[in-house]
C-alpha cells in the first residue's frame, strides 16, 4: 500500500536524510553531558534568533500604530465574491481544510481562513459544510466554525453536522467529498490546507459542477493541479499570509512585514554569496549556511 502518502510515513521518508544527519550529530556528541549548543544547528539557531527578533520588533512597531501595507492577493479578494454567489444561488459553501493534521502550520492557516469564511456564511445565512479527514483538525475546525457563528451573532445557525468527520483514509475521504460535490453542487469550494494526490480529484470534481473554486496549499507537488483547475490559488507563502490579509490586524501585518525583511536578508545573502564566489572563488557564504561550529 505504498501509494498512501500517510503523512507520517512520507514525512519520515522526506525527513530521513535530515534526521540521519541529526542523529549522527548526536552520536558524535555522546560525551557532551553539560549545557551546550548542538553544533550542527548553529546556523539554524542564528536564523531563528534573527527571524524572531525581526518579527518581534515589527510587532512592537505595529502596536505603536505604524501603518502597514500588504499587497493585493487575488485569491483572498475573491472569498467574499464566492460566498456571495453561493448566497444568490441558494447553494452551500464547501470548505475542505486539507488532509493534514492540526499540527501542520498549513492546516492552521487554513483554519484561520475557514473562520473568516464561516463568519461571512453566518452573516449571509449561507449553508456551510466542512468535511474532515484528520480527527484533531476536525476538532479544531469545529471550534473555529462555532466561534465564527457566535461572533457573527448567529449561533442559532450553527449545527454539528456542518463540520462532519468522514474517515481517516485519504482516498475514502476523497470519494466521499467528490460524491458530495457532485450530488449537492456547492456553488463555492474552498480547498485550502495540506493536500496530496487527492488535490486534482477534488478540484476536477468541483470544476465539473461549475463551482467557484479557491485553493491554497504549500505542497509544491500539488500546486500545478490547483493552479490549472481552480479559479484562484494561494501559492505557498500566500496561504500563510492569508490570516493577516483577511483580518487586517495590525499585529499580524507586523509579522508579515518582519517575515519580508528576513526574506530580503536571505535574498541579499544569496546575492552577496554569488558575488563573493564569482569574484574570489570562496564558498564562505555558502559554508556559513551549512555550517556547524566545528568546521
Amino acid at each position: 500500500m505504498s501509494f498512501i502518502p500517510r503523512s507520517a510515513l512520507s514525512k519520515v521518508l522526506v525527513a530521513a536524510p535530515f534526521l540521519l544527519q541529526a542523529s549522527s550529530a548526536l552520536a558524535q556528541e555522546e560525551e557532551v553531558i553539560g549545557w551546550g549548543i548542538v553544533s550542527d544547528n548553529v546556523a539554524a539557531l542564528i536564523l531563528f534568533t534573527l527571524f524572531s527578533g525581526v518579527v518581534l520588533y515589527q510587532i512592537g512597531q505595529a502596536r505603536r500604530g505604524k501603518e502597514l501595507f500588504i499587497r493585493r492577493i487575488a485569491g483572498l479578494n475573491a472569498v467574499e465574491e464566492a460566498i456571495g454567489r453561493s448566497t444568490e444561488l441558494g447553494r452551500k459553501v464547501m470548505f475542505v481544510p486539507g488532509i493534514g493534521t492540526v499540527g501542520e502550520v498549513e492546516t492552521l492557516s487554513a483554519l484561520s481562513v475557514l473562520k473568516h469564511v464561516a463568519k461571512h456564511c453566518a452573516e449571509y445565512g449561507t449553508p456551510l459544510e466542512v468535511p474532515n479527514k484528520d480527527p484533531l483538525t476536525y476538532a479544531a475546525a469545529r471550534e473555529a466554525v462555532k466561534e465564527a457563528y457566535l461572533e457573527a451573532g448567529r449561533p442559532d445557525l450553527f449545527n454539528e453536522e456542518m463540520v462532519p468527520y468522514l474517515t481517516y483514509d485519504q482516498f475514502a475521504f476523497t470519494a466521499q467529498v467528490t460524491g458530495k460535490m457532485v450530488r449537492e453542487k456547492p456553488a463555492a469550494n474552498f480547498l485550502i490546507g495540506s493536500f496530496f494526490a487527492e488535490s486534482l480529484l477534488l478540484a476536477e470534481a468541483g470544476q465539473s459542477t461549475g463551482a467557484i473554486q479557491i485553493a491554497g496549499t504549500a505542497q509544491v507537488a500539488q500546486l500545478p493541479f490547483f493552479v490549472t483547475t481552480c479559479d484562484y490559488t494561494l501559492i505557498g507563502e500566500e496561504l500563510y499570509a492569508a490570516s493577516a490579509y483577511l483580518s487586517k490586524d495590525p499585529v499580524m501585518l507586523g509579522c508579515i512585514k518582519g517575515q519580508d525583511i528576513v526574506k530580503a536578508i536571505v535574498l541579499l545573502w544569496i546575492v552577496i554569496g554569488i558575488l563573493v564566489l564569482s569574484a574570489t572563488g570562496s564558498t564562505i557564504m555558502q559554508d556559513l549556511l551549512n555550517s556547524s561550529l566545528g568546521n
Partner: peptide, 15 residues
C-alpha cells in the same frame, strides 16, 4: 516556493 513557504510557516508559527 519552498524557501518562501518555509519563512511564511515560521512566521505563522511565531504568531
Amino acid at each position: 516556493i519552498i524557501i518562501g513557504a518555509a519563512l511564511g510557516a515560521a512566521s505563522m508559527t511565531l504568531r
